[in-house]
Design a protein around this nucleic acid. Structure first.
Length: 825
DNA sequence: GACCTGCTGCGGGATG
């Protein structure tokens, strides 16, 4: 290595590779020519599989390039801030910073690397102010907080480069919009001769070109540096003995535990991913019950577990003292420095990108293959295993759709700038329009937003708390210190659920639980959290006090999270696999295994081909059922079910109950459903879909809930000071009130409209719904009339039963129904 | 406020 030499003569390419090898990291996966991109002062996106030193190649690449061009940077005491390293995660910032500083030290560069995020103490912040580090690792939120400080231009004036880590994670979220906005500002601060350089670091996504465009905005030339290697992934499917003994419905997969244990035993370290937090708690307990020897080497990791406990788990994983960690998406990111040798995915990963990302958590050493075991939780999911294999071979990775015209985020940012050094309207307007997000914002929208932050717009004029910004001599500023303080506390775009902290009576945090779940329990009740049985003692000031319990039975908490629909890409491959199962099953081992089930489906009904939509009409004692299988994910199915129900009800008076899963949906009625060969195509016709959709779904009610997020982000309602959060009920009430006032008096309100737009985009996935209707329009629609429930409709039917029955009864009922269906055919 | 299986992520500075 270069040691303490003050002059770096070797090419950055060699330096990086030497350095990576000395750390036993993967060699730099790019050609020496691509290295020149750093040296030429360009911007762009770096894309390589995990574990290939992307972080350090970018970091050392840009740093060494400057040093080579400006050797006196090394000797100078004060260079000012040179590089901003934006990362969506706090957790590993300190580790990354230390590693960067160490790398610089070994190269003889005495630069300082500092971290600034919510964990940074006031003293550390002060130190950064007087003694500016050359490199600052920061979250998007903290970056906006910096922009909300006085004289921030001073801090950024020497900035040469901004690197955005995990850009694929930020793209498609409002946190990504925050990055776009911050970059548009920082670009204006850099002088003409040294254009600010921007590097994004991204995993593979379907729209890398778009990701680049969004990152750079409209006045930059950029390039995509793509590693010419493909991470080898071995996908193993864990199968039951026969498909006949496997349940047709269910999502837990606990019965596969005997097949999973050998995988854990045959490997040194394993990550076991579940889709849901309660499922992780159950798997943790079930694994311990099945193999008590795992005690001490098994751990649990999900977002409701106390942060300190999670850090401990990550450290133990790193140190190699843990054999298996049961986790949710909480370990999707940030375990780069904590590789394992095996990954197990229980249940559908719902998307190809997520599956490959998780697979990549294993096999980090050079040349190693990533091993992922897929554990299906019900029969049809075995087809997903085949689909995932094909999707991997064809690299059908999903795209991330960038957020556009998020006015709530813009309102927040405008106040942020006003809290900082203030802004001139025309200048900020021009600046904001260089971003992809606000490229199409109109003059009148901008005027509306200005009015909104200065006097609350036409509706809230009388309330002083909405007069946040004042215009003094053409400069918009926040003059009131309390307003400024309150704004800083509310910077960010993540709006969470009402959480209560769970603490032992003796002290010590366990984790968090939702108001909704805990309100159903009374003192003395026992529930599970972080793998422990806890007795509820009392609830005081949003804290749940508990003590350890040895009770046999315990409630497993439910957390209300996202609905994670099956992705369009995976749905499409899945349809293909069903066709293959019908036409050429012998080409695939998994499909051969599934044959008995497909035969059953074929006997009772039809196995649809790729260009067919299957509709099943079934009569049972529950009533008249209509089942449809578009394989478009549960959100689209919910909307499509409402749409079809509405269209049928236009023909005759009829009411339905609706059920759906990721594969299809059900309409159930107590009268015969008038669907025939003659009218079926009209029911799915894309013409007039939007009008009918708006009449069939309760957009106003959905908008009301979405409006809460918009209201919080734009500063219409306040969540309270940290540590003294308002009860969610209060927040909901005040939001509801504002929603009523606005929707009745100012229906064109931009923030209200945004709530509706977001419902369409994210709750209904309307673009995808439209594409699905278009696709179906070109397909054959096959109506089948089975005499009994089919393997296809079974999981959907079970879903609709859940409401009526307790879980134990449900399990019995499933067995009975499955038995009866199997006999009938 | 409703979901009932339902992920993840963030977070004070200016003044005395």
């Amino acid at each position: 290595m270069a040691g303490k030499n003050k002059h770096i003569s070797a090419s950055g390419f060699n330096i990086i590779n030497e350095w990576l090898q000395s750390k036993s990291l993967q060699p730099f996966p790019f050609q020496e020519e691509t290295w020149q991109l750093y040296a030429e002062g360009l911007s762009g996106i770096v894309n390589a599989p995990t574990g290939f030193g992307k972080t350090f190649s970018v970091f050392l690449g840009v740093v060494i390039d400057w040093i080579n061009h400006n050797p006196d940077y090394i000797s100078r005491k004060k260079n000012g801030l040179q590089l901003l390293w934006v990362t969506p995660l706090r957790a590993l910032a300190k580790d990354v910073g230390r590693a960067m500083e160490e790398a610089l030290f070994e190269l003889g560069i005495p630069w300082r690397v500092a971290v600034r995020n919510g964990d940074t103490t006031t003293a550390e912040r002060q130190k950064q102010k007087t003694n500016t580090p050359e490199v600052l690792i920061i979250t998007p939120e903290s970056l906006h907080l910096l922009i909300a400080t006085k004289h921030n231009k001073e801090l950024f004036k020497n900035l040469k480069c901004v690197a955005v880590d995990e850009w694929h994670e930020l793209l498609g979220t409002k946190r990504g919009v925050q990055v776009e906005l911050a970059l548009s500002y920082l670009k204006t601060l850099s002088s003409a001769e040294s254009l600010l350089r921007i590097w994004g670091i991204s995993a593979t996504i379907g729209n890398l070109d778009e990701a680049l465009y969004v990152l750079l905005g409209d006045n930059h030339n950029g390039t995509i540096v793509k590693a010419d290697i493909r991470k080898e992934i071995a996908i193993h499917t864990i199968l039951p003995e026969t498909v006949e003994c496997f349940p047709w419905a269910g999502h837990l997969g606990i019965r596969m535990i005997e097949h999973v244990l050998p995988v854990i035993h045959n490997n040194t370290s394993t990550l076991l991913f579940t889709n849901v937090r309660s499922q992780a708690e159950m798997w943790y307990q079930a694994l311990l019950d099945a193999d008590p020897d795992l005690a001490g080497v098994i751990a649990l990791h999900h977002s409701a577990i106390d942060a300190e406990v999670r850090v401990w788990v990550e450290e133990q994983l790193h140190a190699g003292t843990l054999k298996v960690v049961v986790c949710t998406a909480s370990l999707d990111l940030g375990v780069d420095f904590r590789p394992v040798d095996t990954v197990i995915q229980v249940g559908s990963p719902k998307g190809i990108a997520r599956f490959l990302q998780r697979a990549g958590r294993s096999g980090h050493s050079p040349g190693a293959v990533s091993n992922i075991y897929f554990v299906p939780t019900h029969s049809l999911e075995i087809v997903e295993a085949a689909a995932l294999q094909e999707a991997y071979e064809k690299q059908l990775v999903e795209s991330r759709t960038p957020v556009v015209l998020a006015f709530d985020t813009l309102v927040q940012y405008m106040v942020t700038r006003a809290v900082g050094d203030g802004f001139v309207s025309d200048d900020l307007f021009a600046e904001v329009r260089t971003t992809n997000c606000y490229r199409d914002i109109t003059d009148s929208e901008w005027e509306w937003l200005l009015a909104f932050i200065t006097y609350g717009g036409s509706l809230l004029r009388e309330y002083d708390e909405y007069h946040r910004v004042v215009n003094v001599d053409g400069v918009y500023r926040v003059a009131n210190r309390r307003v400024a303080m309150r704004h800083r506390l509310h910077i960010g775009t993540i709006v969470g659920e009402a959480l209560l902290r769970v603490k032992f009576m003796s002290g010590g945090n366990v984790g968090t639980i939702e108001e909704y779940f805990i309100s159903k329990l009374v003192p003395g009740d026992v529930f599970v959290l972080a793998g422990r049985k806890l007795e509820l003692v009392m609830i005081r000031d949003m804290v749940v006090y508990v003590r350890k319990s040895n009770a046999k039975k315990a409630h497993v908490p439910a957390w209300a999270g996202g609905r994670m629909p099956l992705s369009a890409n995976l749905g499409s491959v899945l349809r293909h696999k069903f066709q293959q199962a019908a036409l050429e099953p012998h080409t695939n081992e998994l499909l051969m295994f599934m044959q008995p089930l497909f035969q059953k489906q074929q006997e009772l009904s039809v196995v649809p081909k790729e260009d067919e939509l299957l509709v099943e009409l079934i009569n049972t004692k529950d009533g008249y059922h209509l089942f449809v299988y578009p394989f478009e994910g549960r959100l689209v199915h919910q909307a499509m079910a409402s749409l079809i129900a509405y269209r049928i009800s236009q023909q005759i008076p009829i009411t339905f109950s609706i059920a759906m899963n990721d594969y299809g949906f059900e309409l159930l009625s107590d009268q015969p459903i008038p669907v025939t060969e003659d009218n079926i195509r009209a029911l799915f016709n894309p013409d007039g879909w939007y009008t009918d959709l708006k009449r069939s779904v309760n957009a106003a009610e959905m908008g009301r809930r979405k409006f809460r997020d918009v209201a919080v982000i734009s500063g219409l309602v306040f969540q309270g000071m940290p540590g003294a959060y308002k009860k969610q009920r209060h927040l909901q009430n005040s939001t509801s009130l504002i929603y009523e006032v606005i929707s009745q008096n100012e229906p064109s309100n931009i923030l209200l409209q945004q709530a509706y737009t977001e419902v369409l985009a994210y709750e209904i996935e309307s673009a995808r719904l439209y594409n699905a209707l278009q696709r179906i329009h070109e397909h054959n629609i096959i109506i089948s009339m089975p005499v009994n429930l089919t393997p296809f409709c079974f999981p959907i039917k079970v879903d609709s039963l859940r409401e009526e029955l307790s879980s134990e009864k449900l399990e019995d009922r499933i067995k009975r129904m499955q038995l009866s269906a199997q006999k009938q055919a």
